[in-house]
């Protein structure tokens, strides 16, 4: 609870490790897309999810800060693809697919594969507070160094 997949885009080296790992964990189809700009895009598991609103079969469900996809209820209508602001839902011919935060791994107490495998540490599975706290630490370092240079 409270954990999100968070990306530090400035760290991404576009190595595609997350894509390859995700595809391996999900039977060949990656739910993460590494774009040429060098940023991984994956389902943001929005609290107020647009995809959820258009899904009329209950294939998408929001629970504990996670948008869960039930493949067996999916009709493959593609409406959620058209609703997603991030383009983070894919269509594999007959059904939609999206990031499930590696639910099979989390059941065994393991982290989502993309967050664990990222060699550059660009993807993390952490809570917003920790993520931002770390960022403040990094920003603070250069701030403090600037002050020190000023002789204060």
């Amino acid at each position: 609870m409270g954990y999100e997949v968070l990306v530090r885009p400035e760290r991404c080296i576009s190595c595609y490790a997350c894509e390859v790992a995700c595809a391996r964990e999900h039977g060949g189809l990656s739910n993460v897309w590494v774009l040429p700009q060098g940023v991984p895009i994956l389902c943001r598991h929005c609290q107020n999810a647009a995809c959820l609103e258009v899904c009329y079969t209950g294939a998408l469900e929001q629970r504990d800060g996670e948008v869960i996809f039930h493949r067996e209820k999916c009709t493959g209508c593609e409406l959620c693809l058209l609703a997603c602001p991030f383009g983070a839902i894919g269509l594999d011919g007959k059904r939609a697919y999206k990031c499930d935060l590696c639910s099979h791994r989390r059941q065994e107490g393991l982290m989502p594969a993309c967050a664990l495998t990222c060699p550059a540490g660009a993807i993390s599975y952490s809570c917003v507070a920790d993520f931002s706290h770390r960022k403040r630490g990094i920003a603070g370092l250069s701030w403090a160094m600037g002050y020190e240079r000023r002789g204060k």
């Binding site: 885009p9 774009l35 700009q37 895009i41 693809l81 997603c84 991030f86 383009g87």
Partner: peptide, 27 residues
């Protein structure tokens, strides 16, 4: 849900992905 019509409504899913990436790349 979004409290108004989104400005990306005319984009295909691939281009939305692209736009999201550009938004992140700003950092």
């Amino acid at each position: 849900v979004l409290g108004g019509e989104p400005d990306w409504k005319g984009l295909c899913p691939e281009c939305r992905r692209e736009e999201s990436a550009s938004g992140l790349r700003v950092a």
